[in-house]
């Protein structure tokens, strides 16, 4: 979780979100719900949450499927030397400028080929001190916002000091309760999935 290796490069971007292309998926990164960041110009970084990972087909894959028999070497070659990149979709939830974190949309989106890196544990702890970004996630259309938040919160709780993990989830739950007061079924569904195992 502490790796700062580049995951991929920005393919397309807008203020509210961007898509990153990468060659191959490493065993554990990136994952759905991860907090990622893209360093952009002037010491600014844009933070986002991964809400979708898309593996698109290409002509070589189609031909291999038509052949029918899959040689392990051929499968491995196809996975490591893809003709089209794997696409990772990221929802923008905040940005950092001069070491200060703002939750909300950045003044400018990342540019093409900016590097995407996974947020460190310190980044996650710093970013989740404030929970104002929940509203952006829950209100973004066409993304599985509830699923993103559940996965993100469980992971964010893991990097908190053990003695504050429950309180972190409790604060997050209360923020969700404020935001989803109008939809108790949805709220209950999220809360049940983020509750600490020991509770």
């Amino acid at each position: 979780m502490t790796t700062a290796l580049p995951i991929g490069w920005v393919l397309r971007a807008s203020t509210v979100g961007f898509t990153v292309g990468c060659r191959v998926l490493q065993p554990s990164v990136p994952q759905f719900g991860d907090l990622v960041k893209v360093p952009v110009s002037d010491g600014m970084s844009v933070f986002g949450l991964i809400y979708n990972v898309q593996v698109q087909d290409d002509p070589a894959v189609r031909q291999l499927i038509l052949v029918g028999e899959m040689e392990p070497e051929a499968v491995l070659d196809q996975r490591e030397n893809r003709l089209v990149p794997i696409e990772i979709s990221v929802l923008v939830v905040g940005y950092q400028r001069d070491k200060q974190i703002f939750q909300g949309l950045p003044p400018q989106p990342p540019l093409s080929l900016d590097v995407l890196i996974l947020g460190s544990d310190a980044d996650i702890r710093a970013f989740t001190k404030n929970l104002d970004y929940f509203r952006l996630v829950l209100n973004s259309p066409q993304i599985p916002g509830d699923e993103v938040l559940v996965t993100h919160l469980r992971r964010a709780a893991e990097v908190q000091p053990p003695e504050t993990q429950r309180q972190f989830l409790l604060n997050a739950g209360r923020e969700l309760a404020r935001l989803l007061n109008f939809d108790l079924v949805r709220l209950d569904n999220i809360l049940r999935r983020i509750r600490p195992m020991s509770s």
């Binding site: 989830l169 969700l176 209950d188 809360l191 509750r195």
Partner: peptide, 13 residues
């Protein structure tokens, strides 16, 4: 019956 859920709801909802 879940203390976590009770704590979340109490005072907010």
């Amino acid at each position: 019956s879940d203390p976590f859920l009770r704590e979340v709801y109490a005072g907010i909802s």
